[in-house]
C-alpha cells in the first residue's frame, strides 16, 4: 500500500503546487500549461482509483479539449511578451477571502464525513455497464442528462452560427468589394 500512498501524495502535491502556480503566474500561456498539469494529475488520481473511464474522459475533455481550446485562443489573441498586471490589493483580498471560504467549507465537509474502511477492492468498471447506464431510462439511467447535453450543444451550435452570420452583411459593404 505504501507505493499507492506515495503516488497519492505525489499527485496531490502536484495538484496543489500547480493550482497555486496557475493562479499566480503572470504569463497567460504558462498559467494554461500549469492548469493542464493540474488536470492531468487529477486524472492520475482517477487512474489510481481504477476508474479508468472517468480518467480517460478527464484527459480527453479537459486536457485534450478544454486546455487545447484555451491555448488556441491564447495563441490567437495574445503576444508572447504580454504579461498580467499584478492584481490590486482590493482584488487580491477578495480572492483570498473567496479561496479561504471555499477551502474551509470543503475541509469542514470532509472532516464531517465519516470515512469507513472497506475490505472491498476497487472494482474495474466494465465498459458495457457504462454504456448501458448511459442509455438507460431506469432510475439511475443517464439518458435524460445525455439528451439535455445534446440540446445544449445544439443551442451552442445555433448560437455560433448566428454570431458568425451576423457579421456577414456588414462586411459586404466594405469599400474593396464596391470597387469590384
Amino acid at each position: 500500500m505504501i507505493a499507492n500512498q506515495i503516488m497519492f501524495f505525489l499527485l496531490s502535491a502536484m495538484i496543489i503546487v500547480f493550482s497555486i502556480l496557475t493562479v499566480i503566474s503572470r504569463k497567460i500561456l504558462r498559467a494554461a500549461i500549469y492548469l493542464l498539469f493540474v488536470l492531468v494529475s487529477t486524472s492520475g488520481l482517477y487512474f489510481m482509483l481504477n476508474y479508468q473511464f472517468l480518467a480517460a474522459v478527464q484527459l480527453t475533455v479537459y486536457a485534450g479539449g478544454i486546455v487545447v481550446l484555451i491555448i488556441f485562443s491564447i495563441l490567437l489573441t495574445s503576444h508572447i511578451s504580454q504579461r498580467f498586471e499584478p492584481a490590486g490589493l482590493k482584488k487580491s483580498m477578495f480572492s483570498a477571502i473567496a479561496a479561504l471560504t471555499g477551502a474551509i467549507l470543503s475541509i469542514v465537509t470532509i472532516l464531517d464525513y465519516k470515512f469507513e474502511a472497506t475490505a472491498i477492492a476497487a472494482k474495474e468498471v466494465d465498459m458495457r455497464l457504462i454504456g448501458k447506464s448511459l442509455l438507460s431510462v431506469d432510475y439511475d439511467g443517464y439518458v435524460l442528462p445525455f439528451e439535455v447535453i445534446s440540446v445544449l450543444l445544439l443551442a451552442a451550435m445555433v448560437a455560433a452560427i448566428a454570431i458568425a452570420k451576423k457579421s456577414g452583411p456588414a462586411k459586404t459593404q466594405s469599400p474593396t468589394l464596391k470597387q469590384e
Partner: peptide
C-alpha cells in the same frame, strides 16, 4: 491492459497537440 484501451489511446494522443502548439508559440 485497460478495459478502455482504445479510449485511453484516443484520450492521450489528443494531448500531443499541446506540445506542438507550445513549441510554435514560445519560439517567438
Amino acid at each position: 491492459d485497460f478495459n478502455i484501451g482504445i479510449f485511453y489511446i484516443i484520450a492521450v494522443s489528443s494531448m500531443s497537440v499541446i506540445g506542438v502548439l507550445l513549441a510554435g508559440w514560445s519560439s517567438n
